[in-house]
């Protein structure tokens, strides 16, 4: 149920608010109107399309897991430390958020590329990252992790240390406090951050095409496929874009429902 805006909202605010909503809604609707629905099925079920969708879902899932693995500890460290070093670390970690993804891709090349900083080391270890699915995952993790860190850090700061302090005086060591108090209390923020990170992984384009290349089934994720189709078959590009919109909407809807139940339970 949507209620009318309360009186505390100035009426004039509704105009730019509506324009903002339209700016997002109109292009999506336009896309749905342009697509040739009779051709939609064949367009999105071609081998190239299904390969791209499957690759996108796989890499985005793995990347999101990596974001959680590294992002949760980072967020906790950032939320619970102060001082110049923490500020510096925060700026550094959030850098991919403000960088154009292409720049991220170039930076990743300088680090993990064949002639990059770690290229020789990786070579000795027998790891070939360039043009592999691993490169896609690294690129996605690189650009998406700040979304998780930012969202979780905010939740951790909002939750404060009050409950953690209580837990400590009840005899819970740092690990127990983290597991049984810190994380459960920040769960809504963690869920929101995970969704954002997953969506960002799914949409990642610039860093991937720069760092990982583009090959069907290996590195050509859905956004790369869409961009390529734009050259050859614009109708297919529109159809695939709609698929991506659909997946994104589905993810957001699912987690929103889940989060609402979590929040209802936690307050």
């Amino acid at each position: 149920m949507t209620r009318l805006p309360s009186l505390t909202i100035p009426r004039w605010l509704l105009v730019p608010a509506a324009l903002g909503a339209l700016l997002v809604a109109v292009p999506v609707v336009a896309m749905a109107l342009t697509v040739d629905w009779r051709e939609f099925g064949p367009l999105v079920t071609s081998e190239a399309s299904t390969d791209a969708l499957w690759l996108s879902l796989r890499t985005a899932s793995v990347s999101t897991l990596l974001c959680l693995l590294f992002g949760i500890p980072l967020a906790v460290v950032l939320a619970r430390t102060t001082g110049a070093a923490a500020t510096l670390l925060r700026s550094l970690v959030l850098l991919p958020l403000v960088l154009p993804p292409v720049v991220g891709g170039i930076a990743l090349l300088q680090a993990f590329g064949r002639r990059g900083l770690l290229g020789d080391t990786l070579d000795v270890l027998g790891l070939e990252i360039a043009f592999s699915t691993t490169a896609v995952v690294i690129a996605q993790t690189f650009v998406a992790m700040p979304f998780l860190v930012l969202s979780l850090e905010g939740a951790l700061r909002a939750a404060g240390t009050r409950f953690e302090d209580v837990a400590a005086t009840l005899g819970a060591g740092p690990t127990t406090v983290f597991r049984r108090v810190t994380l459960p209390l920040a769960l809504p923020g963690l869920v929101a951050g995970t969704v954002l990170a997953f969506a960002r992984c799914l949409g990642e384009f610039g860093a991937t095409i720069t760092f990982a290349g583009s090959l069907q089934g290996t590195t050509r994720t859905l956004p790369l496929e869409i961009y390529l189709q734009r050259e050859g078959d614009p109708q297919a590009a529109v159809a695939l874009s709609l698929v991506l919109v659909g997946v994104a909407v589905l993810v957001i809807a699912l987690t929103r429902a889940r989060r609402d139940s979590l929040v209802a339970g936690a307050t």
Partner: peptide, 9 residues
């Protein structure tokens, strides 16, 4: 038959 590692834009 060349098997490229990447097919660029």
């Amino acid at each position: 038959d060349i098997r490229p590692v990447s097919e660029e834009q």
